[in-house]
Design a protein around this nucleic acid. Structure first.
Lengths: 200, 200
DNA sequence: ACAATCATACCGACCGGTCGGTATACAAAA
DNA sequence: TTTTGTATACCGACCGGTCGGTATGATTGT
């Protein structure tokens, strides 16, 4: 019975993630999380000092996983455009995965806008993402697969489109063939990044 | 004393907008809105059947204003790329305006994800935006200022980038020169839309 | 024994919404 | 002009219920 506490903690986290995703943070009661986790309120507050702590733990885990997925994807591709198309491919998987898990992304954002602690925990990894994309663009320019562009601006454009697409696909999954639109959108962007005409 | 009721209603809406933007929907109490509006709770429920009704009124007004601004901007520009650059220019103004007003955008999204009524009120205008951009692209292709592209895909790309930029600028206003990034991002996109190379 | 882990009962604060009643505006009647 | 009638606008105490968090005791592992 080595990891009983650990398992309880895990069950609480999983239950909380489900509830937060489906109903949002405020609308989810501690009692509800406990019930879904099959755990008493005492156990809950034994493992986490407050409801918010659970939220923060969830947030950090999510952001960490995202970063890992990104870096391994980049490492596995030969050229920068190839890596980007690869990422677009996995985006489709993301859209097809349970929407509920994606909704919590919104909840994270919403709380980050109000809670300084959540904001800090969100914005720091996010800055790393931006840096990651900027470096990728730089590498693309260096390897000659992209024309010389402002890496920050290009990275921002890519990241912006990605964020916008994820958001739209989350909010309106039936509204369009998002997997297709991701590919086509990236293609347009790459055309802009690879073309040779002068740009004021 | 003709519009006394109207003015009260307006004060309630303004106060609610402020509170929702700063603290979110759930965290904002009706009592708080009333206090800020200088109105009693009785007056509040005289003008609105429920707290949610206030939120919905706010949402509809916001979306309507956005649509109007978009169409007038399009009508005032000669070519499609010019209209788009014009829009990018106003984006900078948007970023520079009070942050608080932008935060409610997040709250709208967050609630749209959970409340079917809010979702419907949000997604229908949004579909009109998409159509608007698609038609604009078509016009650009027709007038020869854009190369022949899939209007839906191009519109999606533009809208996605716009959404992503607004979101990032809202969350992290000091993190970058967003006005500049909007212009550069759009430039890259336009390069992709105007260039002539074949695209698989 | 004794510390970590979990369960139950409970507290005080708070919240959305209701309700009985008052103030104001205005038109018709006197 | 004054009075009366009435619909609208507004007030603020109050209710039923929920919520995050605590206190305290039981159980389990070592």
């Amino acid at each position: 019975m080595r990891g009983r506490a650990e398992e309880t903690r895990e069950r609480i986290l999983a239950a909380a993630e489900e509830c937060f995703a489906r109903q949002g943070y405020d609308a989810t009661g501690v009692a509800e999380i406990c019930e879904r986790a099959g755990v008493s309120k005492g156990a809950f507050f034994h493992h986490f000092p407050t409801k918010q702590a659970v939220f923060l733990a969830l947030l950090e885990r999510w952001l960490k996983g995202l970063e890992e997925q990104l870096t391994t994807l980049r490492a596995g591709a030969a050229t920068v455009p190839a890596a980007m198309m690869q990422m677009a491919g996995t985006a489709q998987q993301v859209f097809e995965m349970a929407r509920e898990r994606l909704f919590i992304f919104l909840e994270f954002l919403n709380r980050a806008a109000r809670d300084p602690q959540v904001w800090k925990a969100t914005i720091q990894p996010y800055h790393r993402y931006r840096e990651f994309f900027a470096r990728m663009i730089e590498a693309g320019v260096a390897e000659g697969s992209l024309r010389p562009v402002d890496p920050e601006a290009a990275a921002s454009a890519i990241l912006s489109m990605a964020i916008g697409l994820v958001l739209q696909a989350t909010m309106d999954p039936e509204g369009a063939d998002w997997g297709d639109l991701v590919r086509k959108g990236l293609r347009i962007l790459l055309d802009g990044l690879q073309g040779s005409e002068a740009t004021g």
